[in-house]
């Protein structure tokens, strides 16, 4: 079985002065092309650190990340990140924010007109073309995150990394955006790695859920397959036994076996 994205025995230790903290311990995971994998865990378990290592923003202490059998250890557009707090540049318009990445990635392969069309295409995918000349301060939180997703998609990443992309949104906006991401995944077949702490979100969106134990020295506790057919419908799933079973498994893992212990 040829893995598309492979996390190979990753350890991560932070050193500050004499104190060293082992955050991640021996994380190994393989992800197939087109798969949607979620990593869930309590806050502070190092799941964002793990995503940053995959993105290349942080280095692993031991082990490494292989994408199509080649080691990646610096950030790049092949692993585009949708950041939790959208991270749009406030001095650029929506269009310019997306274009920033497009211009870099396709500088030699697409003409100016093609790049422009590609930016608009991606803004259309997230239904944000109407706001292309607005600045981030002029649009809502959900819209900002849509633009963040468009920016990442427009780089045509091999793996799309979502770092708690819906965490800062209200429940209704979140549901709406989850549906959008699901539709995009269905349509484009991206490989997606998502960090979340929302059980419903993980079950609804993922093909597999990776559950992490509490830190320090967090490990992968359990990997759960979500055997639900796509396209999935939020309302129908609410009473689907398979969905409820998966949900139950994740909840048990998080709240019984690896209950979050407040650091004293």
């Amino acid at each position: 079985m040829q893995a598309y994205l492979k996390l190979d025995h990753i350890d991560k230790t932070f050193t500050r002065g004499n104190a060293t903290t082992e955050v991640l311990k021996d994380i190994s995971l393989t992800i197939e092309k087109g798969e949607y994998v979620s990593i869930i865990g309590h806050s502070g378990c190092g799941k964002s650190t793990l995503l940053n290592i995959v993105a290349g923003l942080n280095g692993a202490t031991n082990g490494g990340v292989l994408l199509e059998n080649r080691e990646v250890n610096s950030p790049g557009p092949d692993r585009a990140v949708v950041f939790q707090n959208h991270s749009l540049l406030p001095w650029l318009t929506v269009y310019e924010n997306v274009k920033l990445g497009v211009d870099k990635v396709f500088s030699s392969t697409k003409s100016r007109a093609e790049r422009d069309a590609w930016v608009m295409h991606n803004l259309n995918l997230v239904q944000m073309a109407h706001a292309k000349d607005k600045r981030p301060s002029e649009i809502s939180g959900g819209m900002k995150q849509r633009v963040g997703i468009a920016r990442a998609l427009a780089m045509e990443p091999k793996v799309l990394l979502l770092d708690e992309p819906f965490g800062a949104l209200d429940a209704l906006t979140r549901a709406h955006l989850q549906d959008s991401v699901m539709a995009l995944h269905q349509k484009l077949g991206n490989t997606i790695l998502m960090i979340t702490h929302d059980v419903d979100e993980a079950v609804l969106l993922s093909d597999r859920i990776v559950m992490m134990t509490n830190g320090p020295s967090a490990r992968i506790g359990e990997v759960l397959e979500v055997p639900l057919a796509r396209p999935r419908k939020r309302l129908e799933l609410a009473t689907n036994p398979g969905y409820l079973k998966c949900r139950q498994r994740v909840l048990e893992f998080l709240y019984e076996r690896h209950r979050f212990v407040e650091a004293a």
């Binding site: 993105a55 923003l57 950030p75 557009p77 950041f83 991270s87 540049l89 870099k104």
Partner: peptide
């Protein structure tokens, strides 16, 4: 965050200076 964005997009130092740092 802005530095991360620049890193993912792979801006070179000159672009980073003019497109991120100065603004």
């Amino acid at each position: 965050d802005y530095r991360n964005v620049a890193a993912v997009v792979q801006l070179n130092p000159l672009e980073f200076f003019s497109k991120i740092m100065i603004p």
